[in-house]
């Protein structure tokens, strides 16, 4: 009977507890925290990551945060909340965390936006965030097998002109950055090809190397070492200018098709940070960008630095969102049927 008594007390206790807490939560929104913001940060900053430890987001965190710790004189701690291509973490950031600057998240674009563009189940959107800074952008790249008959980007285009839809081209999954790069490219060039989704960048290039498909739209940082070793051939890259890592590979833009695309990673906070906190974070990334050791660290693992701070980052995300939405509206019937 002991049990029953316990259960009873719990049923009484719990609702009152929840109510009490809800009240507390409501009060925290506003209030004289201006002073606290001047001294920001006074406690560790938690970074919610939407992917597993050891993945791309974590990589960025491990490369970046030791420097940020020093610059801001605090500790960045990581919390991994993987699931639904990052959406579980970003939903939490948007809806459940305080906008006091002590909780940030690593935001991947275009994933951040394409998640909710494609699935209406996701309830967050770009307006829920204060983008702080983008750190790296891994540009898209077209690769083929080393023994492929397609020697250049022109060959690739010509083949598709003569055989519409005649090439199987891999991407890292429906809704991923490479998938959208393909859609953008197809729209720009008016060419058609067969899109073959794989579960990630790795399987996508491996399918090319193993001869299962003819080409892959991938990311430079991912395939760089394979291109260096001669396992893959790079045809063109989707960056604004040629990349230092592969200076001989032309950009798609210089070859006459205006498509810039890639996978970018940076930091964002929930909407409504105070100006002081925002500025402190902006300054930190400004300083980070100039640190030669940090720059070298990124180069070592073939991650192209692309620091965009504050409004510039926000603008970049907004534009990418609009373009992605437009493209998805065009093709969604094929996928939702």
């Amino acid at each position: 009977m002991k049990i029953n008594a316990k259960k009873l007390s719990l049923t009484v206790f719990l609702p009152s507890l929840v109510l009490g807490l809800a009240a507390c939560g409501g009060n925290n929104e506003s209030g004289g925290e201006a002073k606290a913001d001047e001294n920001y940060p006074t406690k560790p900053i938690s970074v919610i990551q939407g992917f597993d430890p050891g993945g791309g987001s974590d990589q960025l965190a491990q490369l970046t945060q030791p420097y940020l710790n020093e610059i801001l004189d605090t500790t960045f701690t990581n919390e991994y909340v993987p699931g639904a291509a990052g959406a579980i973490a970003w939903t939490r950031l948007a809806q459940k965390t305080e906008n006091d600057g002590y909780t940030l998240s690593i935001t991947n674009s275009p994933m951040l936006m394409t998640n909710y563009i494609i699935n209406e189940e996701f309830t967050y959107n770009l307006d829920d965030f204060d983008p702080i800074a983008n750190v790296v952008t891994d540009p898209g790249i077209i690769v083929v097998a080393s023994d492929s008959e397609l020697e250049t980007y022109e060959d690739f285009v010509k083949y598709l002109e003569e055989n519409p839809g005649g090439l199987n081209v891999a991407n890292s999954g429906v809704g991923g950055d490479d998938f959208f790069t393909q859609l953008k490219w197809m729209r720009e060039t008016g060419l058609d090809m067969e899109l073959i989704p794989y579960s990630g960048d790795g399987p996508s290039w491996q399918a090319v190397a193993g001869g299962e498909v003819e080409a892959s739209f991938n990311n430079l940082g991912v395939v760089y070492s394979q291109v260096q070793a001669g396992n893959l051939k790079a045809l063109a890259v989707f960056s604004e200018e040629r990349m230092e890592l592969l200076p001989d590979v032309p950009t798609v833009k210089e070859l006459g098709h205006d498509v810039i695309s890639g996978s970018a990673r940076g930091y964002s906070a929930p909407k409504g940070l105070s100006e002081e906190v925002k500025q402190k974070l902006y300054d930190a990334f400004e300083q980070l960008k100039e640190d030669p050791e940090f720059v070298e660290g990124l180069e070592k693992v073939a991650l192209p630095m692309d620091v965009k701070i504050g409004d510039e980052y926000a603008q970049f995300l907004k534009e990418d969102e609009e373009l992605s939405r437009e493209i998805w509206e065009d093709v969604k019937d094929e996928y939702e049927e």
């Binding site: 049990i3 259960k7 719990l10 719990l14 507890l17 929840v18």
Partner: peptide, 11 residues
């Protein structure tokens, strides 16, 4: 008891 443990744990 197990179910109660699990459902109340988060709070």
């Amino acid at each position: 008891m197990i179910a109660l443990y699990i459902f109340l744990l988060e709070t």
